[in-house]
């Protein structure tokens, strides 16, 4: 089993590295880290009002970093759809469930890692190490969410790009909750990333709000469960 997973990881990394389009997207998190680490503090000195929005900039940056790995994974799956490789995987002695779970874990791992590195590299709105770990996990789950939506509903890469932009926009919407007081903000709770934003905002003073992490995990897992079923039905088992 370990050998099979290592084999999948090796081939997936090779596919990303040897594909100029996919490897190009890996530069996005690096560019974001540089932007937030060096440019944002610089511009904040000139325009101090920006300091009030540092956490918003971080939320957007971490989320973009996280979803880019979902996007890359979804394009790898779209390639597999185009090249009919999924058909071959179905007649291999590997469970389709494990194959899909592996793919999503691959995206999530790099997404969490990317978010974690961004939190550590950019200290403009640092929530403390424990919260960094919890937030990296919550933001990291945006990757399989993105990957499953694109891989399930897009028929080709052009559609995939359109879905990416649309879902990216939807994932930005919960940021509005930060400007809404009271119970109304929970109207955005259905979008899983809302819980990551909420936890981040509450933990800016490095306090702990584990319940937001827990509920966020549950919302994410529920959304992923539904998307997973759809992916299996519409793509893998078709």
């Amino acid at each position: 089993m370990t050998n099979r997973i290592l084999n999948l990881i090796k081939v997936d990394i090779k596919r990303i590295v040897t594909d100029p389009n996919l490897s190009g997207y890996l530069l996005v998190p690096i560019a974001l880290i540089f932007f937030i680490r060096y440019f944002v503090p610089y511009i904040t000195i000139k325009y101090p009002v920006i300091a009030e929005y540092h956490h918003l900039i971080m939320m957007s940056g971490v989320m973009q970093t996280a979803i880019i790995f979902g996007f890359i994974t979804s394009f790898m799956i779209l390639d597999e759809k185009d090249e009919s490789v999924l058909q071959v995987i179905r007649v291999m002695p590997i469970s389709s469930f494990y194959f899909i779970v592996y793919r999503l874990t691959f995206a999530t791992f790099f997404s969490i890692l990317g978010a974690f590195i961004m939190f550590l590299s950019c200290d403009i709105a640092y929530p403390g190490m424990v919260n960094v770990i919890l937030l990296s996990i919550l933001y990291g789950l945006a990757a399989p969410f993105m990957a499953l939506i694109i891989a399930t509903f897009a028929n080709n890469k052009i559609e995939g790009m359109a879905y990416f932009k649309f879902v990216d926009l939807i994932l930005m919407v919960p940021l509005l909750s930060l400007f809404i007081g009271g119970f109304l903000k929970y109207g955005f709770a259905i979008i899983p990333v809302f819980w990551a934003h909420s936890l981040y905002q509450l933990s800016l003073d490095e306090s702990f709000h584990f319940i937001y992490f827990l509920v966020g995990i549950l919302f994410n897992l529920f959304a992923l469960f539904i998307l997973f079923k759809q992916f299996k039905k519409r793509v893998f088992d078709r």
């Binding site: 050998n3 081939v11 596919r15 040897t18 390639d79 058909q87 071959v88 291999m92 002695p93």
Partner: peptide, 26 residues
């Protein structure tokens, strides 16, 4: 199973394709 239409990872070499699939078998 040998399918009617080709189904391979186009960006990998023939050897890499076979190496990839052989790892699923005992």
């Amino acid at each position: 199973v040998g399918f009617e239409l080709p189904n391979h990872y186009l960006k990998l070499t023939a050897l890499e394709n076979l190496e990839f699939f052989r790892n699923f078998y005992q």
